[in-house]
Design a protein around this nucleic acid. Sequence first.
DNA 1: ATCAAGATTACCT
DNA 2: GGTAATCTTGATA
Length: 210
Amino acid sequence: MDQYKRLSQDFYNNDTLTVSKRLLGKRVVRNLNGVILEAMIVETEAYIGTIDAAAHSYRGMTDRNKIMWEDGGRLYVYQIYGMYFCMNVITEPRGTPAGVLIRAVEPLQNIDTMARLRKIDLSKTKPIALTSGPGKVCQALGISKADYGTNLIIDNNITITEYKDINQSQIAISPRINIDYAPEAAKNPWRFFIKDNPYVSRHKNNSRLF
DNA sequence: ATCAAGATTACCT
DNA sequence: GGTAATCTTGATA
C-alpha cells in the first residue's frame, strides 16, 4: 500500500446516506493474483435496510443478503440477470442492515488489465465504457460471488482507501436507477455522483440535480 | 418441484 | 427508442 490510509471501521459504521456521499473520491484497491487494480469511486446509491422497499434487506434476512446485518465495511456481492455482479459496501453497526451500491468508478491503475477483464479493445471503444455501471465495475475489477463477505478493513484482496477530497459542491444527487419494482422508494434522492465525471453511468436521471 | 423476477448490459433500428 | 441474453435466488405449493 502507499501513502493513502485505509478507511476504518468507524467510517463504515455510520449513517448510510453519509457513507454514500463520503465514498465519492475514495479509492478501491483490488489485488488480483498480485496485479493491483485501482479505481476512484464516482457514483453510489444508498440502500437503507428496513425503511427502504428497494433494498434487498427490506423483507428480512435470506441466505443471499445476510451479510447486510454485519458490521459496516463488509462486501455484499450478488448476481443480477444471470450474468453480472454488483458490489455493495455494508454500512451501519451490526444488526442494522444497509449498504451502498458502487455504481461507477474511474480507473486509475492497470487499466489494460481492466479492459481485458471487460473484453474491451480500448483502441476501438471509448474508455468510459470500462466502468460506467455497477455490472461493469465488478467485471473490470474481477469481483464475483467469491468475494462475498470480504472485510474491507483488514482483507488484502479488496480494500478502500482515502484518495481525493470531494467537497459538497462537487456532489450531484438524484433518485436511484432501475428500481421500478419499488415505485415509492424510487422517489427518494439516494443516488450520489461526482458532477461532470465522465465515468458516471449515463441516464436521464442525471438531469435532475438537487 | 416449479417458477417469476431481477440495484444490467450490449446491441439493434 | 427497444429488447435479448442468462441463471441464481426466494417465494409458493
